[in-house]
Amino acid sequence: MGSVNGPLARALRSAGLDAIDAAARLGVDPKTVQRWMTGRMPYPRRRDALARLTGWASHDLWPDLPPAKQPARIADEVLIIYPHRSAVPTDTWARLVSSAKREIDVLAYSALFLAEDASIPHILRQKARTGVRVRIALGQPDGQNVVRRGNEEGIGDGMSARIRTALVGFRPLIDEPGAWIRFHDTVLYNSIFRADEELLVNTHVYGRPGAHAPVLHLKALRMDGIVASYLDSFERVWSAARAAPSVPD
């Protein structure tokens, strides 16, 4: 039999309780409490009750308990956070779309910085031709939310003009089987750039252009994690978007 001077015994004394008091509170025999006080391990529900009764943590009362199982850390999906989009290395975007084996999704208002990169439309076209599904959702140039965003950024009709310019840059994809471009008119909380399980998410900050807002580089590790939330958002916007018109040469 162990000494009645273990952590549980000390915890009960510090709470002003003896074996009889604790037994009455827990509805057990005082001899059972005495056995716990001299080292016998209570069942889990009794351990929880004793922890509440004494105010001590379970691992302080029973130091030999195995460590509590930690929940999956969803934050492990975050590979890196850039302070603003212009801080993302310029080759990151090309490497992202080049890595895709199954699907590429873009959700933005204009994504002009991609359309003006000579390599990006070419890579997207080649990916579509090799069986990768390419979907690009741009803001509807005359949509109410595009107009509002332009006003918020202080560029007025400049946002609509950027979208039309981007559409010219993405012209090679307009009639490419396996690639689709649609217009959406939603309040865009984030721009999303997806290649299979990896995402670059450009957050939006009121009154500031996307290039000046943070970017999260994410990689999916679980079915219900951060990436899943953004992909669900993309699908909702995509399902309500309409096909973009062809761009004349």
Rank of each mutant, 00 (worst) to 15 (best):
F113Y: 05
V237G: 06
S246A: 14
P7I: 01
K127E: 02
E103I: 05
K127C: 12
R208K: 12
P172M: 10
T165C: 12
S3Y: 11
D232S: 13
Q144R: 11
L124K: 01
L26S: 05
A111R: 00
A68W: 05
G131F: 06
D105C: 15
L112R: 11
G139S: 06
G207T: 03
Y189F: 12
F170K: 03
N145H: 14
A243S: 15
H212C: 05
V205A: 09
V4P: 14
G210Y: 03
V28L: 14
L114I: 02
D117C: 10
H122D: 08
D249E: 12
V247T: 11
G6K: 04
A24N: 15
A115M: 10
A87L: 04
A111Q: 00
Y43P: 11
A244K: 02
R102F: 11
S98I: 07
L200S: 00
K101A: 08
S239Y: 03
G150S: 08
H212K: 09
A195T: 01
A51M: 09
M159E: 13
A49M: 08
D117Q: 11
L173Q: 01
L218T: 01
S14M: 13
D185G: 07
A100Q: 02
L167H: 04
R171V: 04
R73T: 10
I136H: 02
R149D: 01
A100N: 02
I136D: 02
S229C: 08
G131V: 13
P209R: 04
A19K: 00
P42A: 11
V247P: 00
D249Q: 12
T38G: 08
V247D: 09
Q140L: 08
E176F: 10
M41L: 15
W56D: 01
A137T: 03
D249T: 11
A87I: 06
R25M: 04
A19H: 05
R194S: 09
R149L: 08
V247K: 06
V28Q: 06
S14T: 12
I74G: 13
W36T: 03
H212P: 00
P121N: 15
S58H: 13
M37Y: 01
T54Q: 05
S3I: 13
G27W: 06
K69G: 13
A220V: 04
L216R: 01
T203K: 01
K69Y: 00
R125W: 09
W62L: 13
S99Q: 05
N202P: 02
D157H: 05
P172T: 15
V147Q: 12
A57D: 14
V132C: 04
L231V: 14
